[in-house]
């Protein structure tokens, strides 16, 4: 195991440091379609269907869903202590940013292109909240 060469700056909505094992999703996620009691993705045809996201650093292209369901989905996960440790999102939208802030789940965006290239499921992402710096441990 070795740390990524250097920490990079990102945009982050956070109130604490966080780290978690990466779980990649090629498709947008709607937390309303995640079972709060197990943290298993239940959306049909989703690449993460059947996978658990509790405690993971979930890496997604974007969020999706109406102006309220994303928040309710994440809130239900939080209520069962099954929330992801952080959300890494390429194209954030106000709905997923609001949901993350309200539920106290750190959300990261604006990583340099290619920063996560070579990282795989199970590698660890660390966020230092005060400086908004991200490191990947391979």
């Amino acid at each position: 195991m070795k740390a990524h060469e250097s920490a990079v700056k990102c945009k982050a909505v956070c109130d604490h440091d966080a780290e978690g094992k990466i779980i990649y999703s090629g498709k947008a996620i709607n937390f309303y379609l995640v079972d709060p009691s197990t943290s298993e993705v239940i959306e049909d045809d989703h690449p993460l269907k059947g996978k658990r996201i509790a405690g993971r650093a979930i890496v997604i292209p974007s969020g999706k869903g109406s102006s309220v369901v994303q928040l309710d989905g994440l809130y239900q996960l939080l209520s069962s202590n099954n929330q992801p440790s952080m959300i890494v999102v390429k194209d954030p939208d106000p709905v997923i940013v609001s949901a993350a802030l309200i539920c106290g789940v750190p959300l990261i965006s604006g990583l340099p292109d290619g920063f996560l290239d070579g990282a795989k499921d199970g590698d660890i992402i660390k966020l230092k909240c005060s400086t908004k710096e991200v490191t990947v441990v391979h």
């Binding site: 109406s66 102006s67 309220v68 369901v69 928040l71 309710d72 989905g73 994440l74 809130y75 239900q76 209520s79 949901a99 309200i102 539920c103």
Partner: peptide, 12 residues
């Protein structure tokens, strides 16, 4: 405000 009456929304 697109209030929904769902728990997450109500929490905030």
């Amino acid at each position: 405000w697109a209030v929904s009456g769902q728990e997450g929304d109500l929490f905030y």
